[in-house]
Design a protein around this nucleic acid. Sequence first.
DNA 1: GTCTATAGACGGATAGAC
DNA 2: GTCTATCCGTCTATAGAC
Lengths: 195, 195
Amino acid sequence: MTVKRTRGRPPAGDVADRRTAILDAARGQFAAQGFGGTSMRSIAREAGVDVSLISHYFGDKSGLLVATMQLPVNPIEKIASVVEDGPDGMAERLLRTFLSSWDPHRDIFSSMYRTTMGSGDSQAPMLQLARNILITTLVKVLEGDDRDVRAALISGQLIGLATMRYVISIPAVADAPVEDLVRLYSPGMQVLIDA
Amino acid sequence: MTVKRTRGRPPAGDVADRRTAILDAARGQFAAQGFGGTSMRSIAREAGVDVSLISHYFGDKSGLLVATMQLPVNPIEKIASVVEDGPDGMAERLLRTFLSSWDPHRDIFSSMYRTTMGSGDSQAPMLQLARNILITTLVKVLEGDDRDVRAALISGQLIGLATMRYVISIPAVADAPVEDLVRLYSPGMQVLIDA
DNA sequence: GTCTATAGACGGATAGAC
DNA sequence: GTCTATCCGTCTATAGAC
């Protein structure tokens, strides 16, 4: 059995999945320290690979960020479709969908969040989505007065919840079962939806 | 009339208040781009002064950040004292106090927020305050079950609101009068406070 | 594919002239 | 107090050897 690699150690996971190691390390560090606060060097160190390998796989640092945020499905569109089912009992559906969509991807949420909030870039992908899809959809579905304010406030409640659960990770909220949060949080949110 | 300055242009505001110019520029840029995303050079450029003057006045970049966040009064303590008055009608008092305390200092809020969220530093001053003062005080005052979760969720609602109004600046929320927001937001929040 | 070496830019901080 | 000049560190990105 001949060895292909000319130099380089036999890495942890043996063969091809250094790529995965890079992605995992990047996700973790972007989530913890934001995009600007993370260096390619420290990612490479954690992944046990050479820095230049990152460029080789992902082009540059931004390419890595993009690759990091690829999701099997897009939670935001799923959430928007829940909104379209109308205001009756929306709070409960909205919260359950929001939480169960993002819970498996906490790191990605935190990463997008930190990347978005840490920079003043109003064109950041997360903002675009939040504004265009969530708020716009909400405005269309709500009834009564002050729809635009209420739509933004409802979105803000989701942001606040996610901040506590995924970004700051306050234990009481971060570790609570989805159904507990739905039960506690939805009545108040429904008040805002109804009037 | 003899000129004191040996070199240097006659700056915009004439005499001593370059210091103020530096602080204003810093506040704006920290608020817009976060601490890491702002360079001392760009602050100096905006303020119309030399870079090294910043070091001279404030020691280093962190010193400038600290100086930037000095407030006449501490909003968070004022808010905590409102909480201590008990759960009856708390939502309304809490929201009114929160908003009217921070409204005059939007840039400072945004700056603290971006600085806190953009880095993974769990020792950041804003987090300390939020956790220790706000949540702790809330837990003490609430009645019924799940106090710790509800306390964190209420804090999260304030964070979400402030995110919309001060950080992302969604127009519907950013430009609304305080009393409109109090009227729309407090009923739902009170539900969470009461049970 | 993997690594070395280095280019090239930028940022923070300081010494010292005036 | 103000400015010039500069040092030193860190970062991204790339060229090229093996």
